[in-house]
């Protein structure tokens, strides 16, 4: 079977006028020179689901930070109305002691976002580097580094997090570091797998033949090429971070009152699911929105970084 060659032949036409001596008929579009970041940016803008998600997420973040600051009630503030369903005064209702749920949810969103951002950044940075170095150098370095990662992976996540959370817990950033300290191993596995296959690519050898240092090869060639797969995993990580934080809060080892998080709110609401369902729905909805939008943004980023995947070329 002839391999589908359309992707190259498509461009061949555009290339006609490129070689000296070709007829002057310029049968191609003219493009202004652009930097790579500009190109990535443009491609991202053209990804509709990602753009919508980005707008939604930005609105959500604004709502959580600006809206939360402007809203008449503060987190943990006890109002005279207890257990009222959503109304004009309390759009998300109140709980049994009279805390305004809009204020609670916005506060919880702030904490949850912060936790997931910190977890994702740290776990990804450490995990990607760890996995890339292991995969790139191979041999004994690889074996040792991956054994360590495996060890972390086999730890019963919730139990360890609960224990650490219990000892250091309470404040959100400590919780975030505890979770990141467990999740980086997962990222490193993914990164190593990707790098192992990339390492054999000829362009890596080409870079070496040019005299590139290992650092340059890892940072300029391996990591950018591994980014696609890692980004997709990163979005899963955001969701996982929120869920683990939920679990920890549920067990009482997570964020502590008077601080709150979406996870804590959901778990607190569980006891009142039939009597005060609004307590459950709003934080739940926020968790879903955050997870979904980040997922789509991850998709858009992956496409933007991968010039072969995009259909938009002109």
């Amino acid at each position: 079977m002839p391999e589908p060659r359309t992707s190259t032949t498509l461009t061949d036409q555009a290339q006609l006028a490129q070689t000296p001596g070709a007829a002057p008929v310029d049968r191609e579009f003219t493009v202004a020179e652009r930097s790579q970041t500009q190109l990535v940016f443009r491609r991202f803008l053209q990804h509709r689901a990602a753009m919508i998600s980005l707008v939604v997420l930005v609105l959500l973040v604004l709502l959580a930070y600006v809206g939360g600051a402007l809203w008449k009630y503060d987190v943990g503030e006890i109002t005279p109305d207890n257990s009222v369903p959503p109304s004009l005064d309390h759009p998300f209702g109140t709980d049994a002691v009279g805390k305004d749920q809009l204020a609670q949810v916005l506060g919880g969103t702030r904490i949850s976002l912060q936790v997931s951002v910190v977890v994702t950044l740290f776990a990804t940075a450490i995990g990607t580097l760890w996995g890339s170095i292991a995969g790139f150098f191979g041999g004994r370095i690889d074996t040792v580094m991956m054994r360590i990662a495996d060890l972390v992976l086999t730890l019963p996540l919730v139990a360890v997090a609960a224990m650490l959370g219990h000892n250091f817990g309470g404040t959100w950033y400590l919780i975030a570091f505890v979770i990141a300290g467990l999740y980086w191993a997962y990222v490193s596995r993914v990164a190593r797998g990707v790098v192992l296959s990339l390492r054999e690519k000829e362009y890596i050898e080409a870079a070496r033949a040019l005299g590139a240092t290992n650092t340059r090869i890892i940072l300029r060639h391996l990591v950018p090429n591994a980014l696609g797969s890692i980004l997709v995993n990163l979005t899963i990580l955001v969701a996982l971070a929120i869920l683990l934080e939920t679990a920890l809060s549920y067990l009482g080892f997570g964020v502590q009152n008077p601080d709150t998080s979406l996870g804590l709110l959901v778990s607190e609401a569980q006891t009142a699911l039939t009597t005060r369902p609004w307590l459950f729905y709003f934080p739940g909805l926020f968790i879903i929105i955050i997870a979904l939008t980040i997922n789509f943004i991850g998709d858009g980023l992956r496409d933007a970084f991968d010039p072969q995947q995009t259909k938009v070329r002109q």
Binding site: T9, L10, T11, L16, A17, T19, A22, A23, R27
Partner: peptide
């Protein structure tokens, strides 16, 4: 000179023309 044309949306005329002296 040049490379073979794409066989998608071919312009009219001789396909070799862009490369033909």
């Amino acid at each position: 000179p040049g490379s073979p044309p794409s066989v998608v949306n071919m312009p009219p005329g001789c396909p070799f023309s862009p490369r033909c002296p």
